[in-house]
């Protein structure tokens, strides 16, 4: 069992949770992920590290309440325990000799952008972080990012309620046009990553994307997470989650992410009906 030692609500539907897991904390690196299962009947879901402390023995992740499992997870409180937490899984994000890098995070993807920006900055890169959300209320980890030694932090919202009004690709394109980028890293909804990669491709700026395909075991055993990269089938869990954004087949990724949408909706509706919370 993994005791919950931290919980914070970041927005209406986004939560940060920390669990005691000293062994995982000792090995965690930016860009890696965890498999989490709430209880005996729970689903194994992949969640990316948002933070960890090897000294204090905890790890944190951020999730958006979208389906039954994340819904259930949002009801767990400090002092309770999660049945299973497995990690650190996946290949860590490459951070050496990155030069001038844009780290783009969209929505709950900012949870991954934050430790990646931190690791890049620590490795000596000049990091411009671009974070985006639909509106100010959904923006997460702004203060944490401000505390990092970044070149710049650019905030973008769809409705202009915070930072620049528009999409994350706008400032990304400006940086490309100004010739100020050696590399880019993007994490967020697949459609956002697709457009980030399309933006940088024009300028031949190497771009890494952190993908979020469906997974079951997360250790290379099932192949649910397969993605096409340069026409070749790769496994998100053991070959990724980071891939060359210019080579990923995003249409296929988005299609594959939708396979269980109806069933997930059914499960969540079933759960919400029986649960006491009023959303």
């Amino acid at each position: 069992m993994f005791p919950i030692v931290h919980k914070r609500q970041l927005s209406d539907s986004v939560f940060e949770m920390g669990v005691e897991a000293p062994k995982i904390a000792a090995k965690a690196r930016a860009g890696q992920f965890l498999m989490v299962r709430t209880d005996e009947y729970g689903e194994r879901i992949p969640l990316t590290f948002s933070d960890w402390s090897a000294e204090e023995g905890w790890i944190r992740f951020i999730f958006m309440r979208v389906g039954k499992t994340t819904h259930q997870l949002s009801h767990f409180e400090v002092g309770e325990s999660l049945a299973d937490v497995v990690g650190p899984l996946g290949v860590p994000t490459h951070t050496e000799n990155a030069g001038r890098v844009a780290v783009v995070g969209g929505g709950v993807g900012v949870a991954v952008a934050y430790p990646v920006a931190r690791a890049l900055a620590e490795a000596g890169a000049q990091v411009t972080a671009i974070i985006g959300a639909r509106n100010k209320a959904l923006l997460i980890l702004e203060d944490e990012l401000r505390a990092l030694p970044l070149e710049r932090l650019i905030i973008v919202t769809d409705d202009g309620s915070a930072g620049i009004k528009g999409l994350v690709t706008h400032p990304l394109k400006e940086l490309c046009e100004a010739g100020e980028l050696d590399a880019a890293f993007a994490v967020g909804p697949a459609i956002m990553m697709k457009f980030c990669a399309a933006t940088t491709r024009e300028f031949s700026v190497p771009t890494t994307v952190s993908l979020n395909p469906i997974m079951v075991d997360g250790t290379g055993m099932c192949g649910a997470c397969r993605v096409s990269v340069n026409g070749e089938t790769k496994f998100g869990c053991v070959d990724g989650p980071d891939f060359d954004g210019h080579a990923v087949d995003f249409e296929e990724l988005m299609s594959r992410q939708r396979i269980y949408t109806d069933l997930e909706r059914e499960a969540d509706a079933d759960y919400s009906q029986g649960c006491q919370c009023h959303l």
Binding site: Y41, G42, E43, K68, V216, L263, E264, A267
Partner: peptide, 20 residues
């Protein structure tokens, strides 16, 4: 994947079991 969902994750009991 197919067998893991059914055997290990008991997906045949969905939605009692969470794995679809």
């Amino acid at each position: 994947e197919f067998l893991t969902r059914v055997n290990l994750m008991r997906a045949y009991e969905f939605p009692t079991a969470d794995t679809p």
